[in-house]
Design a protein around this nucleic acid. Sequence first.
DNA 1: ATGAAAGCGCTAACAA
DNA 2: TTGTTAGCGCTTTCAT
Lengths: 345, 345
Amino acid sequence: MPVPDGVANGQFTSQRGVTIHDVAREAGVSPATVSKVMNNRYGVASATQARVKAAVTKLGYEASLVASSMRRSSSNTIGVLLAGFDPFATEVIKGISAEAVGKGYELLAYSGAIADERAVGWEHRSIQRLGGSLIDAAIVMTPTIRISGTAIPIVTVDPPAGLTDSATIASDNLAGAREATKHLIDLGHVRIAHIRGRTDLLSAQLREQGYVQALAEARLPYDPSLTLTGAYRRDWAVDCARKLLDLPYPPTAIFCANDWSALGVYDVCAERGLRIPEDLSVIGFDDIPEGHVLAPPLTTIAQNLPEIGADAFRLIRSMLDGGGSDNITVATTLMHRGSTGPVPA
Amino acid sequence: MPVPDGVANGQFTSQRGVTIHDVAREAGVSPATVSKVMNNRYGVASATQARVKAAVTKLGYEASLVASSMRRSSSNTIGVLLAGFDPFATEVIKGISAEAVGKGYELLAYSGAIADERAVGWEHRSIQRLGGSLIDAAIVMTPTIRISGTAIPIVTVDPPAGLTDSATIASDNLAGAREATKHLIDLGHVRIAHIRGRTDLLSAQLREQGYVQALAEARLPYDPSLTLTGAYRRDWAVDCARKLLDLPYPPTAIFCANDWSALGVYDVCAERGLRIPEDLSVIGFDDIPEGHVLAPPLTTIAQNLPEIGADAFRLIRSMLDGGGSDNITVATTLMHRGSTGPVPA
DNA sequence: ATGAAAGCGCTAACAA
DNA sequence: TTGTTAGCGCTTTCAT
């Protein structure tokens, strides 16, 4: 194994990188002066400035983010706090990142729940550990609990139920669910089932509510036996679909609270030889890539995840500038593909 | 706007969060004792321990990552350094994150190129700023330059040309390109063009090399006029495709260095009324989602991005444990979809 | 215009 | 068993 230049022993022990003291020594000035030059403060002779800059370039010095953010109040960095880099979080991050370009902030995505199994409360830990020094503000992705009493501005993406007093961004789950259900109604369906999500999550509550509203708006009867809990899980949805199809008067269409649940419905149709959409219409929510490659491709309600991220970034910036909190909702889009069709004759 | 508990004025000024001193005061001990309790050091009376723990819980204290990593040598955190959260980087991160679960490390993805326009050299800056204190090691995504003389172990994903002396992970671009070309040859094609990528990148060089090798292995003539530079860009590829099809003896198949280039070929076929694959076979590289929804869906060489991430994590861990550097190559997969077929009669 | 000194929050070494 | 001291790298007064 070749030794990189500048590393003495090929191992990476306590080597600390080049510090402000190294630059000061090289330039023959004090660390304070180097700091002034680095931060463009007034009161440094241009000759000294040049000497320091030369030393900085020669040594490849960059101020340690840790040390400077510890001393300063602001680090110019916005934190994105998440439990793990799942597809939802990463799509939102792409939106944050795109919006952040050229705005003068660095982005730092921190996944602090990976180390220990403390699943609940990771967001509090992450905020405490990074807040106030390393990051000036945080965008928290789908937290498990209410966050309160933080020292920095927080924007919550996909908030838990009951969190309306702080800044939040989420898809318009209510309108999306209404549109999904209305789509089935427009196709002539009258007996429409709903496989709902995790009832402890606000998103699932709103999607169910949208379903109920759409039925009411169309003056269609609401049959409680047609709503089962799939908990956003494919395996649970399989059970739900079986029960639904075993009903004496089964539904002709199912609105699934998410695409994973819809996949479960596909499974059951395959096992029973039911054709989609001829025998049963299926609509999902989220628009995951897996839905595209299904046969037929899944009709679903797409979330605009990058837009959620962009909104989150704009909101956190405005809060950093002294602006107030807000609760933002992002429009969804009906993706009419192959899994929904007219009611069977 | 409601005021979160614990924040005095509704604004988030210099509020610093709860420190070790607050806990010490609350428990009636010294900060050092609190530190010992937090880090499970021996030599603390169990009564004191209980008192400190109670104070910690009451105040919701978590040690500042910045302060502790500044004092310690290790922070237990692995950094993922990137220019921005693009699709390539995020897919790899998913793999890193999945592999990191339960291994006792935190993950910190830092995008330091967003703030200023210093496109080249962002990786050096990020390493200097975070290395040695905030992160114990770094996985650097597609750097623009050679990295050398770092104080911490570095693994490079998708390295630039000429970087073989340090730890690297990349797709097996050579074998993938060979397989793509061979696929076309097996279909009976003899006149196969190549729209190559950015010639300054190692990946593009290897893909072109694989194309040439496959031709040689099949004892097919290599015609330099059939290789044009698309620079991984759709618009450039459009020009390339036009030139290729205007040739007196045009190719019957095109191997594109990436899927974006293949999209450009699709554009040209549409504008000229050429059918894919009846009139022209097209194969790409990367397997981006956009390729799935094309008509016909794009045949391509899929990179196993999550596997690249997982390998990167494993390698960096082994280096942290004193292991040596390595150059790892990850297998690609031919995705035979609709855009390649037998040579036109 | 420059440098000395203090201190951000934490931990390791040492003293009591 | 506990507390005191020093210092990580940096920035910010405040002297000089």
